[in-house]
């Protein structure tokens, strides 16, 4: 308990006793059982199956504020990497976690983050098996940065890739769009905004497993992160070489998010999510996939948003409420005003 109510100092990254105490007290003790080793040595029977493949991914997480309604950076760091594995068709198994801490960060905050990570990992059925900590001087980073890497196993015969999407396939998302992005905007310390919106942050490994079981012909899935649904769909359209059409009236949007977007002048299609994905399934399996999603809490708001078409290859279009069609592009950078 030597670290209680303290703040992180440069000594905690110095390699001496202070560092060892921090690691043991804050990290390894929480991530047990069975403990976190400097180098994880793993056995996995599933890998021995002929045709099974290893999935391996990594992501760094930075978010301001570090804690927000519905989660914190630790939750995003676990869920984000779990979701990366899951949408590739893998069963997520193990994570690493590396922390970059700004001098002066409250240890209590760190404990909360780590507790979240442990809880989320357990819920997602993954183990955090290795990690690292560095401390940098004030201003060299913003509070806490977390990098997680994840390993999972793709069972034999499972092929999910954006390139497999073909005309006629149905696009399904697992819930309302933009809650995470809207929450972060509203929670920014410098914007005094009261809002009931919470981050959608969630691990989607179990949901993906259920969808795959219900719709074995599933073509592809993508988690919606930065750039929102619009960016994920553009990536799929370009990789698959087919067109995508989404229906404006079918898009699941919370009125509060729409309202916030109107005031801020942002398009919810581009807002970030941390617990949302889009799957493409053959039309015949759409109902089953939808039902499987809806059976889980993190998919309760699932709905069909559109489909793949043979026309306008590589382009995403939205059929508007009035029956027109608008092109939904990937943005180069920030949303800049365009009206002249």
């Amino acid at each position: 308990m030597a670290l209680r109510d303290e703040r992180v100092t440069l000594a905690h990254g110095g390699g001496g006793k202070a560092m060892r105490d921090l690691i043991e007290e804050v990290f390894t003790s929480v991530f047990q059982p069975p403990g976190m080793e400097d180098q994880a040595r793993l056995t996995e029977a599933a890998l021995a199956e002929p045709g099974a493949r290893l999935a391996f991914t990594t992501d760094s997480y930075v978010v301001t504020p570090v804690e927000f309604p519905g989660g914190d950076i630790g939750k995003i760091a676990v869920c984000g990497t779990v979701n990366d594995l899951a949408v590739g068709g893998a069963r997520p198994l193990w994570l690493s976690a590396a922390f970059i801490l700004e001098e002066g960060t409250e240890v209590a905050l760190l404990r909360r983050i780590v507790a979240t990570m442990a809880r989320e990992a357990e819920a997602a059925g993954v183990r955090i098996v290795t990690g690292d900590t560095k401390v940098v001087g004030r201003g060299a980073c913003d509070g806490v940065f977390v990098t997680t890497s994840g390993v999972g196993v793709i069972p034999p015969g499972r092929e999910m890739a954006a390139g497999r999407v073909r005309p006629g396939d149905v696009a399904i998302v697992n819930g309302v769009l933009g809650d995470h992005g809207a929450t972060i905007l509203a929670a920014r310390g410098d914007l005094a905004l009261t809002s009931d919106i919470e981050s959608d942050c969630a691990a989607l490994g179990h949901l993906m497993a259920d969808v795959i079981a219900a719709a074995p012909g599933i073509r592809a899935a993508r988690d919606l992160t930065r750039g929102g649904l619009a960016s994920a769909l553009n990536e799929i359209a370009q990789t698959a070489g087919c067109g995508l059409v989404i229906e404006e009236t079918a898009l699941p949007l919370r009125p509060e998010v729409v309202g916030l977007c109107e005031i801020l002048g942002l398009d919810p299609l581009y807002l970030a999510n941390e617990g949302r994905l889009v799957v493409f399934v053959p039309e015949a399996e759409a109902a089953a996939a939808l039902a499987a999603m809806r059976a889980r809490p993190e998919g309760a708001g699932a709905c069909v948003v559109g489909r793949a078409v043979a026309e306008h290859a590589g382009q995403v279009r939205m059929r508007t409420a009035f029956g027109g069609a608008r092109i939904v592009d990937m943005l180069v950078g920030e949303q800049l005003p365009r009206i002249c």
Binding site: D190, L191, A192, I263, L264, P337
Partner: peptide, 23 residues
Amino acid sequence: APRDLARQLAAKGINAPLSSSAG
């Protein structure tokens, strides 16, 4: 109108670029 929020956006420069537009 949501004036308070709009003023915050303007003051903080959140999606509020400066413009000399005559329109």
